[in-house]
Design a protein around this nucleic acid. Structure first.
Length: 273
DNA sequence: AAAGTACTCAACCGCCGCTAT
DNA sequence: TATAGCGGCGGTTGAGTACTT
């Protein structure tokens, strides 16, 4: 015998989440932390599959998420990581604090892919386009067209490997520096440190599991509290929940935290009243 | 102003590796 | 050891929105 089914498929709600459902999920996770997702719907009083709850939380409700479009330097980082890792969006997202795999995947498909094609770069191989129409047809899944080491050292048509360094020198990155905001600068610093980190670089090139980004160093704003406990470690959820509730009193934006949108803030306000 | 088209992105689907039973 | 659920992942879909004609 195997395990018990994760959820009763009958009576499970699908489709967009309501504010009420979000509220229940947020409250539950802030109170109990991330436990087994299978149990979450029942315990939180949601008629959702555990999988759906996990997705909603990780892609939308998580307080450490950045919001808004990726800036130019983030885009460049995605392009570069994609050149190394292919469509492994979760791996790419792991190197971009505050961004989700889904978000990066969407952005790749809707913005970056087109941008690269426009620039005459094949989004699959990250080399010069040989045949634009062919590239468009096959751009969805790099790994399917590459095998073994090619996955990690996407060869250019001329046989030379597309290296991290070559992307740094890439003109679009240089251009992006000119119009860089403070946020851009932070990401650029991250990107540069990535390039300078020999150990990480070798991990990337060898497809080993790279050293995890030290999320303890994350600072969401100069003035506000950092997310030391919440970012990737949910063992201190009581602290996290307390801090989130504190945010209501001071105003979330005062902390430089735009992670919660208006709906989220309303939810917290309602809960507090 | 209305209709048609293109775009965006949240959410679902199905697969895979791991693991509990 | 076999079976089946869980968690996670990448691919895809479709409703809502923006833009164009």
């Amino acid at each position: 015998m195997g395990r018990q089914p994760c959820c009763d498929k009958l009576g499970v709600k699908k489709g967009p989440w309501t504010a009420e459902e979000d509220k229940k999920l947020i409250n539950f996770i802030l109170t109990n932390g991330q436990c087994c997702w299978r149990a979450v719907p029942k315990l939180a009083g949601l008629r959702r599959c555990g999988k759906s709850c996990r997705l909603r939380w990780t892609n939308y409700l998580r307080p450490d998420l950045k919001r808004g479009l990726l800036n130019e330097s983030e885009e460049q980082l995605v392009i570069d990581l994609h050149a190394r890792l292919g469509n492994r969006w979760s791996k790419i997202a792991a190197r971009m604090p505050g961004r989700t795999d889904n978000e990066i995947k969407n952005h790749w498909n809707t913005h970056i892919k087109k941008k690269l094609l426009k620039m005459g770069i094949d989004p699959v191989t990250h080399g010069p386009l040989q045949n634009k129409t062919e590239a468009i047809k096959t751009s969805s899944s790099p790994e399917k067209h590459l095998s073994g080491s090619e996955k990690h050292h996407h060869s250019l048509p001329d046989g030379s490997a597309n290296t991290l360094g070559s992307s740094v020198e890439n003109s679009s990155f240089a251009q992006s520096e000119k119009s860089m905001s403070i946020d851009d600068h932070d990401t650029k610093t991250l990107f540069e440190s990535l390039c300078e980190d020999e150990e990480l670089l070798s991990h990337l090139l060898n497809e080993e599991e790279p050293p995890l980004i030290d999320t303890s160093a994350w600072e969401l704003s100069d003035n506000g509290p950092s997310f030391h406990h919440c970012a990737n470690n949910f063992t201190a959820w009581e602290d996290c929940a307390t801090w989130l509730l504190d945010c209501q009193d001071f105003g979330v934006h005062d902390f430089g935290l735009d992670s919660f949108n208006d709906v989220d803030i309303n939810i917290l306000n309602t809960e507090n009243n």
